[in-house]
Design a binder for these strands. Structure first.
Lengths: 205, 205
DNA sequence: GCAAAAAGTCCGAAATCCCGGACATTTCTC
DNA sequence: GAGAAATGTCCGGGATTTCGGACTTTTTGC
């Protein structure tokens, strides 16, 4: 499970206290004092979430939010607002912040919120990798000539059977449920050499 | 995106107000007054989240929480606690509640919290279906007789081409680099019906 | 080293597949 | 709604594949 939290907070004292809270709960704080310092790690595969103050000199929390969203719209940003500054918080949510916390915030609430965000991030990243895997397999079943695809698959089946049977053609044929002569025919056509598969697998024979 | 919220709250007035808040934000409240009424829809593929009061006669929020987790540990439960009842809230989180809200709660905060939970739920369900798909494909490769394996693969290639071409056989044949008559022959042999692949893919054509 | 079993090779007929061509039907285009 | 283009169906001969059987070579077991 991912656990990085990129902190953007100009008040050094508050930053230190946040870092401490996170470390006590086995999260991995990355402490920065302004947006410029924080930019580098913010990218689409960042394995963590962002915790940023809103009110800061130069770049504020909304700048951070916009930048993060340009890099990855599914990278959660939690913003720290001033006490009971509801309008700002509302605006932040509308602009896509994952959540917000009022300063000063309860450490437990902070950690709970971050854990939810990390959980979310984790699911998003997992989802992406699953999707990539599915796409990759789909690609495999959709590139090259029909004949090529069929032949590749045929070769794979035959070679796999040969590996399991230590390169013995007749045994491999029996395993695949086809007459041995047919097996030889196919191997000739595909130019598969049985000898090459002897001793490849340890439990062969 | 899923949007159901199963509400368990014995106070009818509060329940009505929650329902109203949710409907204003295009969520789908399912309103119930106690655990017994709520049990039925709670199952592992429930397309929504649970919002439950903690303090109720007979069964309380922790009973709900435990029951939900027995049905699906990844089904978010948001609990409503009394005002500033921090210890109970902490306990709920420890037992696996997704979040908690203090009564009376701000409608905006309520909706934000529920949306996060719904988002989470959505990702979990999506993740599961992806995983199922990957498992299914894995199973397909490497079992059955030779003929079965070849035929399955052949069918996959042909069906995928048909999907890409919106069920047009001639186009699919061209894509695969085989004469259209051969394509028909193969489809007849495999009992693949072209019509079944029309409109499956949005960019077909 | 001998017999038996398995592995590998060659042949040919039957079965199957490939694929062009002719034709019917549907869909598009103006 | 006529003509064109694409889709779908049917046929048949030539090419390929299948697969049993006969044979040779290699491996196995004693």
């Amino acid at each position: 499970m991912i656990s990085k939290v990129l902190i953007i907070e100009d008040d050094a004292a508050l930053r230190a206290s946040v870092v401490q809270s996170l470390e006590l709960d086995d999260l991995e704080p990355i402490s920065t004092g302004n947006f410029t310092q924080a930019r580098r790690p913010i990218r689409s595969n960042f394995k963590g979430v962002i915790l940023s103050d809103i009110k800061m000199p130069d770049y504020d929390g909304f700048d951070v939010l916009r930048f993060v969203q340009s890099r990855d719209p599914d990278l959660p940003v939690i913003l720290l607002t001033g006490y009971s500054d509801v309008p700002t918080a509302m605006k932040a949510m509308k602009e896509g912040a994952y959540d917000y916390l009022e300063k000063p915030c309860d450490p437990d609430r902070l950690v709970e919120t971050l854990r939810r965000a990390l959980d979310h991030r984790n699911l998003v990243l997992q989802n992406r990798s699953y999707r990539e895997e599915i796409d990759a397999r789909q690609k495999e079943t959709g590139s090259g000539t029909f004949e090529e695809q069929m032949e590749n698959h045929e070769r794979q089946i035959i070679e796999y059977a040969l590996i399991l049977e230590d390169g013995k053609v007749n045994m491999a044929a029996k395993r695949l449920g086809i007459p041995r002569n047919t097996m030889y025919d196919r191997m000739t056509r595909l130019r598969v050499v049985a000898k090459a598969f002897r001793g490849v697998n340890d439990d062969g024979g």
